Computed example of a mutant assay.
Amino acid sequence: MNGEIELLQAVQREPVVKHVHRELRRAILQGRFAVQSRLVETAIAKLLNVSRTPVREAISKLELEGLVRRLPGGGVVVEDTSSKLSEVIVLRQSLEGAAARLICMRASDAELAAFRAECQSILKALPTMAVQQRANLDRKFHLHLGELSASTRLANLIEEFYEYSDSELAPAGNAAEVVQLQKQHVAIADALVARDAARAEAAIRDHLETVLTIVRARVQA
């Protein structure tokens, strides 16, 4: 019985841990915590209005991701994340490239046609869209690749790594850059409709390289 109670408590706690983990990860990647600054469980728990337990579990997840480090004498400090973005892009290229190969084998013609039509429609509507709307649609595009692959495990990984990088890869305000990125979405969709896996994978790789270049230029400006 005790084991069942503990399991139920863990399941109920998981959404809170996920929320705390996401908020802390976003704050670290956005630079709201200085490198080598300490993460204090009690302060974070008070800030997020949660108990210390989910904060402790969230920090353990951040440690596994290499975003924080435990000190020998106790305590946790924020690591330098400047090199993490390139690493995440490489992983996303591999994951979304794998999705493209599966999509070409598994998705129906109707699904692919609808996917391309939506990408084309978004391209036409871009000038009237707010930044947050563009960000939401970008997220939808990349997660849709996972869904179309018909692989739950791959879809979950694509979502995980998208969430990992979304705070740094938010669409830029530059209109020309936004149009360029959406045209690349259309190019990816075109390759998928043609069931050309190699072209789709190359288009995904080029797209994410472009995103990385834009973000780096923005940081250096």
Rank of each mutant, 00 (worst) to 15 (best):
G3N: 02
E4V: 11
E4A: 14
E6Y: 04
E6L: 08
E6D: 10
L7K: 07
L7P: 01
A10S: 11
A10C: 00
A10I: 04
V11Q: 10
V11D: 08
Q12C: 07
Q12I: 07
E14P: 05
E14F: 00
K18R: 12
V20P: 05
H21R: 10
R22N: 09
L24T: 12
L29D: 05
L29S: 05
L29W: 13
G31N: 04
R32D: 15
R32T: 13
A34F: 10
A34K: 00
R38Q: 03
L39S: 13
L39N: 07
V40E: 06
E41P: 09
E41Q: 06
K46S: 13
K46Y: 14
L47A: 15
L47H: 07
L48Y: 14
V50E: 06
R52C: 14
P54G: 12
V55H: 14
R56H: 05
E57D: 11
I59P: 04
S60H: 11
S60A: 03
K61Q: 02
L64P: 02
E65G: 01
G66T: 12
G66L: 02
L67I: 07
R69G: 05
V76K: 00
V76I: 15
V77R: 01
E79I: 14
D80V: 06
S82N: 10
S82K: 07
S83P: 03
L85T: 13
L85C: 13
L85F: 04
S86I: 04
S86M: 06
V88S: 11
V90Q: 11
L91D: 15
R92L: 00
S94L: 03
S94M: 12
S94C: 10
S94V: 09
L95C: 08
L95T: 14
E96W: 07
A98S: 12
A98Y: 05
A98P: 10
A100S: 11
A100K: 03
M105W: 08
M105P: 00
A107Q: 10
A110T: 09
E111G: 03
A114K: 04
F115K: 02
R116Q: 14
R116G: 10
R116I: 01
R116N: 08
C119Q: 04
S121M: 05
I122M: 10
I122C: 03
I122H: 06
I122Q: 09
K124F: 02
A125V: 07
L126M: 02
L126V: 03
L126I: 12
M129N: 00
V131Y: 00
Q132W: 04
Q132K: 06
Q133G: 07
Q133L: 13
R134E: 15
R134T: 12
D138A: 15
D138R: 15
R139W: 12
K140S: 13
F141H: 14
F141M: 14
H142W: 00
H142S: 09
L143P: 10
H144Y: 01
H144R: 14
L145A: 03
L145M: 09
L145F: 03
G146P: 10
L148T: 03
